[in-house]
């Protein structure tokens, strides 16, 4: 094909962008929300107290695997083996890397933080702040491609959180439903929505198939996940909020700041 450029130079327009809208508002909001969440969850994870009030267990501490746990997810905790620091610090640290890694490598969160923290690009048609750019071609960002492993881990967490939510019906005086029960179920549903709308999940469950008509089950699965996947960003934010607020609710109840309302 005949390229016949007059020259190779781009249009001589100096401005980094010519947008007139409030393109900076969204990335700014993302910075605000994500920072608040990280600060709160770190504090909550380090507090090592007020994460359990019968029958509710905070999602930040689930599954509670350490022997020192106030709540023993599996009926019994791990033996207080050679890591003396566990128990002193916080059992949350044993497990929080799982969901954290899932969110960190999530295709949607990557978009959100590359834009708002990396500023590459901060908004569409707004010039990147840094001059050099290698994307996800090098260590450590090349590891983002292992998102599917984080997804496998996240699925295990959904199992534990569902178990916790079932246990949330078991009050000291028998079966019951409190506001906390509903909060925990809502949280599980939103987290499951987020986990099963994942792009890697969509690929693993059916996206890799080329001839759908020959794999009808995978096609149906892919079709359903694709519908969910369209709302992946929404689930990402709602579940982020719900997990933090569930912890906050249980924490406040445990601290005696508020009372859990028993519905049944």
């Amino acid at each position: 094909m005949n390229g016949h450029a007059v020259s190779q130079a781009r249009p001589p327009i100096a401005a980094a962008h010519l947008r007139k809208d409030t393109w900076w508002a969204l990335p700014l909001a993302v910075v605000g929300v994500l920072t608040s969440f990280i600060v709160y969850s770190t504090w909550a994870a380090l507090q090592n107290a007020h994460y359990f009030v019968a029958p509710y267990l905070s999602p930040f501490y689930s599954p509670c695997l350490s022997k020192s746990c106030l709540h023993l997810t599996l009926g019994r905790g791990l033996p207080e083996f050679t890591v003396p620091i566990i128990g002193v610090v916080s059992p949350a640290l044993l497990i929080l890397w799982g969901p954290a890694l899932f969110r960190l490598t999530c295709y949607y969160y990557r978009k959100a933080y590359y834009r708002s923290f990396w500023l590459a690009p901060v908004a569409c048609a707004v010039r990147d702040v840094k001059a050099g750019y290698t994307g996800e071609t090098r260590f450590p960002l090349i590891l983002q491609n292992f998102h599917r492993y984080a997804w496998y881990v996240a699925v295990v967490f959904i199992v534990f959180l569902t178990w916790d939510a079932i246990l949330a019906f078991r009050f000291p005086d028998g079966f019951g439903i409190g506001v906390g029960t509903l909060v925990m179920w809502l949280n599980v549903i939103l987290l499951a929505g987020y986990t099963f709308s994942c792009h890697s999940c969509r690929h693993i469950c059916g996206g890799h198939v080329d001839v759908f008509s020959k794999s009808p089950t995978r096609y149906t699965l892919w079709h359903v996940i694709s519908r969910l996947n369209e709302r992946h960003p929404m689930y990402a934010w709602l579940s982020l909020g719900s997990v933090g607020l569930t912890d906050l609710y249980i924490r406040l109840v445990s601290m005696g700041v508020i009372r859990d309302l028993r519905l049944l």
């Binding site: 690009p121 569409c124 048609a125 071609t137």
Partner: peptide, 10 residues
């Protein structure tokens, strides 16, 4: 070089 794409969706 799909690795250069950081899926920022513009």
């Amino acid at each position: 070089s799909v690795g250069l794409c950081n899926i920022t969706k513009c």
